[in-house]
Design a protein around this nucleic acid. Structure first.
Lengths: 332, 332
DNA sequence: CCCGATATTGGATACGTTTTCATGCATCTC
DNA sequence: GAGATGCATGAAAACGTATCCAATATCGGG
């Protein structure tokens, strides 16, 4: 029962043609109709599946695309990954996934592993900066950034949510409700968002109300709790990610701050549980899936042209976690 | 600036040895100390990285391992994936991920793609049944199931949470609180859990209180809402997954059923938002990450022996979504 | 000092594919 | 009808590695 898989030679011999012809027929090259049909028949009959191994070696590149993201456990990244997988599947390409934990060193390691595998197309949510990415790009990797870009990597196409508009909308909404002391709770690799926050706040900005956590849940919780304790005078918080938002809700509850009476909260990224919270959470929704899909699309047809990045719209979804300053509003 | 990557030949020539020697040194074969050192020096100097392409073709198998799961967006599966990735990374192996959407056909397609890639080791959360998996196994894929097994695939090692104990604990807890009309809200591919539920309920079982949804959020919500409307006399629900639990919470809220006063809820799988809900959700926690890690471990050293599967413990985490029958208990 | 055993080495081969190139054949043009 | 043009085809050469096998060098024992 040790049937070796049929190779292209088997097909060629059985069909009475040369291997080159078989290869051409299967790759869509030119061949006479009768030859084509005979080859196809024999191939189907032998259940021949071309080996990607041989092809990869010959073309010196593995077909697949690499996907690097900070944490597959985070639903946002999970949705980005889902988008990439969907696109890759429709193109029949395998996807090699690696998680960086937002650690540039680990990221570099993974890139090394991918190159060893012959992967030459990469979708990444980058952790490292331009310096860290330089060797990778010089090596000829077709790269597309997703969700965020990297300092000094301006020439790499990126598929981003419109953070600028998102942050502005959030800040405008909060200030419109009368809030002045608005805190920003940020995560790693979001210099862009933070900069826009400062810009949108203008003269209202208070550097003490800006806290940046590392990637972990603990770190996020510590940052939120520390902020709330240290500055009990703040009236609103913008959480720059669902992990930060989660931490904010937990810390607020622990400190007996009621949302939205004592504090208004807007969270970046809409997640299923935002509606389950009470009060339900007002969020800036990002098209995570689309981000992944578009990024994969770009990287798949990326060889020839060098397309400029894409900016996808965000959306403010008003639920129950924000109230006018000084007013008590009953949660939905 | 078009530096081709160094090959094993370059190393051999520069070091003044044969390619065979280089290969041996790098693969841990025997070589004289001085030769070994010279080869290693030259390799480092040329920044030589062996091409997985060549090796794969030669050994007729791609190094990596395949990972098949229903939905990368679901945090539970995300955590399983994280475990697999962690283990694979420590072994330096790439992981090719595919999502099946709980569709056996799509699963089979993905397996075909993996085999084409030369992948011969697979961790899967299976969708199809034994019949669907038979060809795969006959093809010599080293397979380990995670989270659930498949009908008629008894001989495939599987890493599972102890569903039996989990369901029993949940049912015992609920009956201990005085509940008699307990509903079960199930998802796809969980015949095992459902069977144990029937068994644990014994004479109390009411087939009308058992509903099985398909994988989607919509389907889960519809199932929950339908159940609650059709049988307003039920007093407790066991949700067989976090998606089902989410749907139950939403449907309950929509129908103005207050947890836990009007209905007690236990959800399978502990997720971060279980604590954010109000009331916070009582859950059966499963070691998702461990499941993935152990499965990957098994598949990595699986070639030789055929290890029997692993059963990992579950844990009842009591929070605020269950109350004694007929009693009103204030949420935490 | 010689012979056999052992350790180290390099040449050659095969893995399965794509692609180049030359060949044969038929058709077209003048 | 002869040369030119085009197409279909197959032989052969890579791609980069691991491994088989024979050859050589080293060493110990008699």
């Amino acid at each position: 029962m040790n049937m070796r898989r049929a190779t292209i030679r088997d097909v060629a011999e059985t069909a009475g043609v040369g291997v080159a012809t078989v290869s051409r027929v299967l790759s869509g090259g030119s061949a006479s109709p009768e030859t084509r049909e005979r080859v196809l028949t024999v191939a189907a009959q032998l259940d021949y599946r071309p080996s990607a191994l041989g092809r990869n070696l010959r073309q010196r590149r593995s077909g697949g695309i690499g996907l690097l993201l900070p944490d597959i456990t985070d639903t946002f990244y999970g949705r980005v990954a889902d988008g990439v997988l969907a696109c890759a599947r429709s193109a029949g390409e395998p996807v090699i996934v690696g998680t960086t934990g937002d650690d540039p060193e680990r990221e570099a390691e993974l890139i090394g592993m991918l190159m060893e595998q012959g992967v030459d197309r990469l979708v990444a949510i980058p952790s490292g900066d331009g310096e860290s990415w330089a060797p990778t790009l010089r090596a000829g990797l077709t790269t597309v950034f997703a969700h965020r870009t990297s300092a000094g990597c301006g020439d790499i196409p990126a598929v981003l949510a419109d953070d600028r508009a998102g942050v502005r909308t959030a800040v405008d909404y909060l200030t419109g409700l009368g809030h002045r002391r608005i805190a920003y709770l940020g995560g790693p690799g979001q210099a862009q968002r933070l900069a826009v926050f400062r810009e949108a706040m203008g003269p209202l900005v208070d550097e003490e109300l800006i806290v940046v956590a590392r990637g972990s849940r603990d770190s996020a919780y510590a940052a939120a709790a520390g902020l709330f304790q240290h500055r009990p005078d703040l009236t609103a918080v913008l959480a720059g990610g669902n992990l930060l938002g989660e931490a904010a809700v937990l810390a607020a509850r622990e400190l007996d701050l009621r949302l939205p009476r004592d504090m208004s909260l807007i969270m970046f990224d809409d997640v299923p549980w935002a509606e389950l919270c009470s009060p339900s959470l007002t969020v800036i929704a990002q098209p995570a899936q689309d981000i992944g899909y578009r990024a994969a699309e770009l990287v798949l047809r990326g060889g020839g042209r060098r397309p400029r990045g894409v900016l996808l719209p965000t959306e403010l979804i008003v639920r129950g976690s924000c109230a006018a300053r000084g007013t008590s509003r009953s949660p939905r």
